[in-house]
Amino acid sequence: MSAIFLTWSLGLAKIFLALAMGIAAFRVLRGPRAQDRVAGLDALYVNAMLLALTFGIAAGDTLYFEAALIIALLGFVGTVAFAKFLLRGEVIE
């Protein structure tokens, strides 16, 4: 009984997170300004990471954790690089 509840709530959580990713992607596409797009990208990768973790729980596989960690690392570096670019116009000083 509780296993069915868990399965359902996992499915619902995946839908929620996918929707959240969609909204973040909407903000990336829509703008209106460059900093909005970068903020959207930031939210997008955090949501993607959480989605990977949820998939990991659903599949019962800790391998997804590694994917989530890599998404978090690369997303952070990417967002900082973009923000830095907005700040100065060049990434490496």
Binding site: S9, L17, R27, A39, A43
Partner: peptide
């Protein structure tokens, strides 16, 4: 189940705020 739902819902609300 409750933790996952709460986390996903919070994230969704956060993204809604972005919109």
């Amino acid at each position: 189940a409750i933790l996952i739902l709460a986390g996903a819902a919070t994230t969704l609300i956060g993204s809604l705020g972005l919109w």
